[in-house]
C-alpha cells in the first residue's frame, strides 16, 4: 500500500515556487471564473496546467486529502496547495484569493435580493427562485448519484450511503449524533476491504 503512489518529495518536484502575490492572484482568477461549479477543475488548470506550481500527483493527493478534512473541499484544496508552496502565509493567501470575488458577488447578490424581495416584484422573484431551487435540488441529488456510481463498490458502501441519506435527510437526526455513529461504523466496515482508489478530482 505504501508504494502505491510516489511520495511527493517536498520542494524538489515543484517546478516553480510563486510569490505570495502571484499565489493570491492565481487563486483570485480561479474564484472569478468558477460560475456554475467545477471549481476543482479550475484550480487544477491554474496550478498544474497553466502555472506549473505543482504536478498532477500532488494535485490529486491534495484533492483527496481536502475531501477527508471537513469543510468546503475546494477551499481546503486552496489551503493545501498554499501550504505546500508557501507555508503558513500561503495557507492564508490562496484561500483568500479564491474567496475575494465570490464573497463580493455574494454580498452584492444578497443586498439586491433582500431589497427587491420586499418590493412589488417580490412574489415573482420568489417564484423564479423556487424554480431555480427545485432545479438546484435536482443538481444536488444528481451529484450524490454520480458520486455514488463512482465510489460505491461494495454492498457495505451502498448500505452506509443509503442509511446516511435516510437518517440525516428523512428522519432529520442531528448531524453530530448521526456522524458519531455513522463514521465509526463505516470505518469498521471498510477497514478490511481490499484497496481500491476511488476517482479523485472527478468533479
Amino acid at each position: 500500500m505504501r508504494g502505491g503512489r510516489p511520495a511527493p518529495p517536498d520542494g524538489a518536484v515543484t517546478p516553480s515556487r510563486p510569490g505570495l502575490l502571484a499565489l493570491y492572484l492565481g487563486f483570485l482568477t480561479v474564484g472569478a471564473c468558477s460560475v456554475g461549479g467545477g471549481l476543482a477543475a479550475w484550480i487544477r488548470r491554474e496550478s498544474v496546467t497553466k502555472r506549473r506550481w505543482i504536478d498532477d500527483t500532488q494535485f490529486l493527493t491534495g484533492y483527496a486529502l481536502s475531501q477527508l478534512v471537513p469543510g468546503a473541499t475546494n477551499v481546503n484544496l486552496a489551503v493545501f496547495i498554499g501550504t505546500q508552496l508557501r507555508g503558513g502565509a500561503g495557507a492564508v493567501a490562496a484561500p483568500a484569493g479564491l474567496m475575494t470575488v465570490p464573497l463580493g458577488v455574494f454580498l452584492g447578490i444578497g443586498s439586491v435580493y433582500f431589497a427587491l424581495s420586499r418590493g412589488a416584484a417580490g412574489p415573482w422573484i420568489a417564484l423564479a427562485l423556487a424554480g431555480m431551487g427545485a432545479s438546484a435540488i435536482g443538481l444536488m441529488l444528481s451529484i450524490g448519484l454520480r458520486l455514488g456510481r463512482r465510489n460505491l463498490r461494495s454492498a457495505a458502501s451502498v448500505g452506509v450511503a443509503v442509511v446516511t441519506a435516510l437518517v440525516v435527510g428523512l428522519l432529520r437526526v442531528k448531524l453530530l449524533v448521526a456522524l458519531l455513529v455513522l463514521i465509526p461504523a463505516s470505518l469498521a466496515l471498510h477497514w478490511r476491504t481490499p484497496a481500491q482508489r476511488p476517482d479523485a478530482a472527478g468533479e
Binding site: R2, R5, Q67, G148, A165, S186, H190
Partner: peptide, 26 residues
C-alpha cells in the same frame, strides 16, 4: 498513504449519503 486510503474509503459512502440527504431535506 495507507492510512489516508482507508479513511477515504470509509468516508466516501458517508459523503455520498450526506449529499443525497441534502436534496431530500430541501
Amino acid at each position: 498513504a495507507g492510512w489516508q486510503a482507508r479513511v477515504e474509503r470509509a468516508l466516501a459512502p458517508v459523503a455520498v449519503g450526506l449529499t443525497l440527504a441534502s436534496g431530500i431535506a430541501l
